[in-house]
Nucleic acid binder design. Structure first.
Lengths: 125, 125
DNA sequence: ATTCTCCGTTCAGAAATAGAACGTACAAGC
DNA sequence: GCTTGTACGTTCTATTTCTGAACGGAGAAT
């Protein structure tokens, strides 16, 4: 996967790591999906997206950050990376059971957004 | 989401603002509470905390960022700021109805954290 | 008068992000 | 063989954000 890593494409470390062992389960959950993009990647997975380009196009996140977050989600067991093509080696990212268990939290956020952040646009939820 | 920028202590603006008008209600919700600390401040409010020092001690967040997030939450209508003391003018931050509506999402995160992030020591220690 | 508490603000250095270009691997077309 | 197109990342630099510590001010307590 990674070639010579002269410089580590590091993940957030300082304060996030403390959250991972916090007494509060909400904080521990946020240590995994509490950054700007990660929850949206998980949402995209729920919507059936699974490929790098799909996430990138959908979210508008920079490729660097997307690459970083996908690695982190795989490392955390939220996503699973499997080859969907062997000849041009390509990987698909799909939710694990651990990832699918975010559904209630996502629904809570969805309901809040619909109620408190209305918008008039061709919504296709 | 334009916020009072009386000074240069501006709040995250570039990509977060786009989320606020995203077609997806989850993204719109995250434009409000999707950063590292904001959801934890809301959690603290659910736990009965209401004062600057309480949040700061509880979270370990820097005072600068805490000040910024509280302003943002008040501007977004998630928290209400009321004086609890007039002589040494002090304000308490409490959840509005809009803020209390985060309960389902928080419970979802809590359940996920309890199930998938059991408390354990960091590897080294 | 001095110290203490509470609620922030300011500053410099460290870290993360944005935006774009670059690399690799394979397939199809010329 | 050479170029173009697609998919999946990596590398680069400039900008933005965060951390950590110090500073300030207003009243309270000693």
């Amino acid at each position: 996967m990674a070639r010579a890593k002269t410089k580590e494409a590091s993940l957030p470390a300082s304060k996030w790591d403390e959250l991972a062992t916090d007494w509060c389960p909400v904080a521990r959950a946020l240590s995994v999906i509490g950054d700007r993009w990660t929850m949206l990647i998980v949402r995209d997975c729920f919507l059936g997206k699974s490929r790098f380009e799909e996430f990138q196009t959908s979210l508008g996140v920079t490729r660097h950050v997307l690459s970083d977050r996908l690695k982190r989600l795989v490392a955390d067991g939220v996503l699973e990376r499997n080859a969907y093509s062997t000849r041009p080696l390509r990987y698909a990212y799909r939710l694990s059971e651990k990832g699918r268990d975010f559904a209630p939290a996502l629904i809570g956020l969805k309901d809040w957004g619909k109620k408190h952040m209305p918008i008039r646009k061709p919504a296709a939820v």
